[in-house]
Amino acid sequence: MKSFTRRTQRPPRTQRTEREVPVQSVIVWLISFVSFVSFVSLAFDAQTPRAGAIRGRVELRRVLSPPERRPGVAEAGAPPGRDLPDLRRSVVYLESAPRGAFETNEGGRAVMDQRNETFVPHVLAITTGMSVDFPNSDKFYHNVFSLSKTQRFDLGRYAAGRSQSVRFDRPGIVRVFCDIHSHMNAFILVFSHPFYALTDGEGRYRIEKVPPGVYNVVAWNEGTASDPKSVTVHDGSIAELDFTLR
C-alpha cells in the first residue's frame, strides 16, 4: 500500500531522457538473469554427487564405571553427593576425511559445564577453531586444566557463575581435569573435519553430509578406539556401520 501511495503522489513524467531505463525492461532483464542462474545451477547439481550419511550403533560390551572419589581418610566428614558422568557416549568419526573437508573452519562455541562435581557433558566433540566455555555452576571453586599434548591449559580457580573459555586449534584428544576434585574428568575430541558424531544413550550415531567415497571409520569410547572399519558411501545414500567396543 505504501509504495502504491508513494507512486501515485509522484509528479507525472513529461519527458524521458536518453539515460532513463524503462521499469518494464529492468524487470524482464532480472527475470532472465535469475532464470539463467537457476538453469546453470540445476545443471551443475545434476553433475555433482549428492552427499550421503553413515549411521549405525556402537555397542559397549562393558560400560566403564564413573571414577570414584579417593578415599578421604583424612577428612572428618563424608563428602557431599555428586552427579555421575554418563560414560556410555561414544564418538564415531572418519579417520581420513574427504578432500576439501578441511577448508571449512567456522569457529563457533561449545559448553562444558561443571555441575555437582561433574563435567557436563562428559564427552565433547568439536572441530578445530571452536572455543569451549567452562562455566562453574557449583557453589565452590573448580579449576579446569589439561596437560594433554594437543592442548595444555589451566583456567585457575573461579567461583560459581563465572566462566572461562579455551580455543582449540589443534586436532587431538584433550583430557580435562579439575585440580581440586580429582574424580572430575572429561574428554574433548577435536577434529579438523566435520565428519564425526556422538552416540545417543542407546549407542546410535549418524554422520551427516558425507560425500560419496570409501572411508575408514573409527569408534571411540573413554580412551578406547576400535580398529578402523571401511565403508562406502554411495551418491546420496546412507551407509550402515556398527561397532563393538571392549
Binding site: P171, G172, R175, A225
Partner: peptide, 9 residues
C-alpha cells in the same frame, strides 16, 4: 586429520 585415539593410563 582426526584425533589420535589411544588408551589412557
Amino acid at each position: 586429520m582426526a584425533p589420535r585415539a589411544h588408551a589412557q593410563v
